[in-house]
Design a protein around this nucleic acid. Structure first.
Length: 468
DNA sequence: TCTGGGGTCCTAGGACCC
DNA sequence: TCTGGGGTCCTAGGACCC
């Protein structure tokens, strides 16, 4: 904990939904849920209007559909559009201080004390944040951000939540305990549903209650690391620093199937795709991995992992796939799998030189980082593998637009940017039964008209996210 | 037709080594 | 022929975060 309120936490309000409302004027002021749209999808972000009906992040989309009125938009995420706005925001944060820790696309900590020219008085940091929030709104076409500024990361984050949306809270040094005491223990970093429930069984509900627990008791209940940190954090003692960049420790890819899968051929085809995606992302970060892990979730949601550690790090999708296949062979799939995942860990920056002499059969060429000159996502096909590029089975994935819209190209998914040669730019409201319904509007237009086309109408084409 | 996907950190037991 | 103690690595699982 510092003596000045010099750590800022900033996050964007209902980020995915807000970008959708920015780019789709007809949705402004309306309930919008962004996330998985299949039967097993969950909501990633609900707009504030949708929250009034009870829709929440992590809620099954089916449940959100039951709660929200008809006319609520359920959209599949447009990652490119979110990343672009995120980049603009993070650049603005870095213009304030060189020490910015990006936590996710929509959230970051900024170390204001690391900037040479900032007045660290309460009024000084408030002015900086106000200017920043205004700049963000201006540069992103109206997205709003909330910020908290305090003497520690935890208090800064709590501050940013207090007056959302578009809130700004400065916690003056010395007031931390007063602020923290009456709040639910859930505001403490590291307290989730399980810890909350166990604390409740001891009669602990607020941070003030938690402060009354002995350290030794917390340690005996929760273990030394967790128990010790609860004892400290309840007293607002948090000396976690703002760190610019952390090295990745693992890379993984997973898929939840639309329907549970029993067929080993279908599972193998999915394993191929997952190994390829994992290797591609590993290659993109120019890393190599020693441990391969598969993750399976049974029909009843019981989830387990199996892992194997190699003698030497690899970046080869074929090697990762071989291990994953071996691991999956030992798993009972007779009741059907709901989810399959492939991951790697034990990352290092280089494959070992001695590899060349020890194991000549390992393809060195495939272990070189993938070329990525134009900055695009490496194609799966770029990975050297002795497996067909097209999965053999018909693998249906819950969140995938293809699964939602059914068979047959082209597929259109709700929220997608689209263009019509005559009517111009628009977005997909929905698609099915060979038809696609499009609303023609953009961030700078008035709410547009709605027209329906055949899905294979040659006048329709995919489009880039619009400029606001 | 409840329950995504991508991560991080911690714990605990067993193998193995000295 | 009766059992120590520390350290590291590996595996599996769990909680948590966005």
């Amino acid at each position: 904990m510092r003596s000045t309120a010099s750590i800022m936490h900033l996050d964007l309000d209902a980020f995915f939904a807000a970008v959708e409302q920015r780019d789709k004027p007809s949705l402004r002021g309306k309930p919008v849920c962004v996330g998985g749209i299949g039967a097993r999808g969950v909501v990633a972000t609900a707009s504030y209007e949708a929250r009034r009906f009870g829709a929440r992040s992590a809620m099954p989309t089916a449940e959100a559909r039951r709660r929200c009125p008809s006319g609520t938009a359920f959209l599949y995420p447009r990652g490119d559009a979110y990343r672009e706005s995120s980049r603009i925001v993070m650049d603005l944060l870095r213009s304030v201080s060189p020490v910015v820790e990006q936590v996710s696309v929509d959230e970051a900590y900024v170390d204001l004390a690391a900037a040479a020219d900032i007045d660290l008085s309460a009024a000084g940091v408030r002015a900086v944040a106000e200017r920043l929030i205004a700049e963000i709104q201006d540069a992103t076409g109206g997205l709003t951000a909330s910020a908290g500024i305090a003497s520690s990361k935890m208090l800064a984050k709590i501050g940013s939540e207090l007056e959302k949306p578009a809130g700004l809270v400065v916690v003056p040094p010395g007031r931390e305990l007063q602020l923290l005491g009456p709040l639910s223990v859930r505001v403490v970093s590291g307290i989730g549903p399980a810890t909350e429930a166990r604390l409740r069984s001891f009669g602990v509900e607020t941070v003030a209650d938690l402060q009354r627990m002995e350290r030794a008791d917390l340690v005996s209940i929760f273990g030394s690391a967790h128990g010790g940190s609860l004892h400290e954090l309840a007293r607002a003692r948090d000396d976690r620093e703002v760190v610019v960049e952390r090295e990745a420790k693992s890379v993984s890819a997973e898929e939840t199937f639309e329907h549970d899968v029993v067929d080993r051929e279908v599972l193998d085809a999915e394993l191929v795709s997952l190994a390829r995606r994992t290797a591609a992302r590993l290659g993109k970060s120019a890393a190599f991995a020693r441990t391969v892990t598969i993750k399976v979730r049974q029909h009843d949601f019981a989830t387990s992992t199996r892992s194997e550690t190699l003698l030497h790090p690899t970046g080869d999708a074929g090697v990762i796939l071989d291990v994953a296949r071996r691991l999956l062979a030992g798993v009972d799939v007779s009741n059907g799998l709901r989810l399959l995942g492939v991951g790697v860990s034990g990352l290092s920056a280089h494959a070992q030189e001695q590899l060349r002499f020890d194991e000549p059969e390992v393809h060195l060429a495939a272990q070189l980082p993938f070329t990525d000159s134009d900055g695009t996502e490496p194609e799966e096909a770029a990975v050297d593998m002795d497996v067909p590029a097209t999965p053999a089975g018909d693998v249906r994935r819950t969140p995938s637009p293809a699964a939602y819209t059914g068979d047959g190209p082209p597929t259109w998914w709700p929220g997608q940017d689209i263009a019509h040669s005559e009517y111009g730019a628009g977005w997909v409201w929905g698609s099915g039964l060979g038809r696609v319904t499009v609303r023609f509007e953009g961030p700078t237009t008035r709410p547009g008209r709605v027209l329906t086309f055949r899905v294979d109408d040659p006048e329709l084409s995919k489009a880039d996210p619009p400029q606001w």
